[in-house]
Design a protein around this nucleic acid. Structure first.
Lengths: 185, 185
DNA sequence: CACCTCTTGTAGCAACCGCTACATATGCTA
DNA sequence: TAGCATATGTAGCGGTTGCTACAAGAGGTG
């Protein structure tokens, strides 16, 4: 059983990279297998089926995303809403994190059509985001803070829609506006 | 030639509804043909290939979206940024418009991976959005207004990511926060 | 040695994909 | 009436999809 478990790890590592680089559309069994350097036959020996492969690699990606976020801005930073939004927005557009956001976009799009396992992943990651924001706001817990967190999440997630649709400059311009607002307060 | 053109119209009408209801994943030639009530053979008689079908129906959808938006809030409404964001956000989550936004999400996700013809459509619609917002802001033309428009676009588009990932309540909560901010000004 | 589980390869299934070859029916025009 | 462009159906191509049947080597245990 040792070989199998070892291979699962190796495969999941490779697929994390592959999915970040190419997205959900390049994720047929044969493509995944090739990216992981194994045969498709073996991929289905290591994992029960494609859904299990995707669920596990998506879970890893969600972890990676959460880890990077919590390093970027530490918990309890106690930031004003606009300041937090601007800082989070800036981080989210960084070279290192952008691939996560692009993939995240595809996951939510799939979730909007109730495609398993993306609906579950999407819910879980969104909750993580909301919590991450709430814990960094200079606001007392409660519905007001939760509403602000949801608004900031919309703003930050929306930035990559702007980035994809209108280009990096417009996303940067949006952040500049945000920064100006934060300073004016 | 008359029959063919007539059928093209009929087919495009049906496909607009179909895509809004089911999304890009239910858009194989055979599925599109079935939804339009013709054979797949005939679909490729009316249109050169699948790309042409998709491009034309996406163009129609973009038109429909733009038309609904310009009716919802008239041009030159001269709204303060937060007020406009709140009103646009509320409209975008309405029963009638939500399907457009879900589909829009899929289009941008596809565009993020450079899948034709979605990259073009995505750019065009985003530009339309940005212009729509700019023309309804109580701001003089210029980089500041454009930056604000980009920020509002991120906010409004991001609302459907929140809606999909966390549910309608959270999206509504975000709008409530927005409304509170608008009033406080 | 014999057996048994773990691991891997070869080959192929049925379903679907976008698209096309070919025959045929229809109706207008010369 | 003959011919020709338009319109439609039947059948199928080569390719990809997720998945599986089957055989066989490897390695430990009785």
């Amino acid at each position: 059983m040792a070989v199998r478990d070892e291979q699962r790890e190796r495969v999941l590592d490779a697929l994390e990279t592959h999915l970040l680089a190419t997205g959900l559309s390049q994720a047929s069994l044969r493509q995944l297998a090739a990216a992981a350097g194994v045969s498709d036959r073996m991929l289905l020996y290591y994992f029960a089926d494609k859904a299990e492969v995707m669920a596990e690699v998506m879970a890893r990606l969600a972890d990676g995303m959460a880890r990077r976020l919590s390093v970027a801005i530490p918990e309890g930073a106690d930031l004003a809403p606009w300041t937090l939004a601007a800082r989070a927005g800036r981080f989210v557009l960084e070279q290192e994190f952008l691939p996560y956001m692009r993939l995240w976009l595809e996951v939510v799009a799939a979730a909007a059509r109730n495609e398993a396992p993306f609906a579950d992943i999407s819910r879980q990651v969104t909750q993580g985001f909301l919590g991450w924001i709430a814990q960094r706001l200079d606001q007392p817990p409660g519905p007001a803070r939760d509403g602000l967190a949801a608004m900031i999440l919309a703003l930050v997630d929306g930035l990559i829609l702007v980035e994809v649709g209108a280009g990096r400059e417009h996303a940067d311009a949006a952040i500049a506006s945000l920064t100006a607002i934060a300073k004016a307060k």
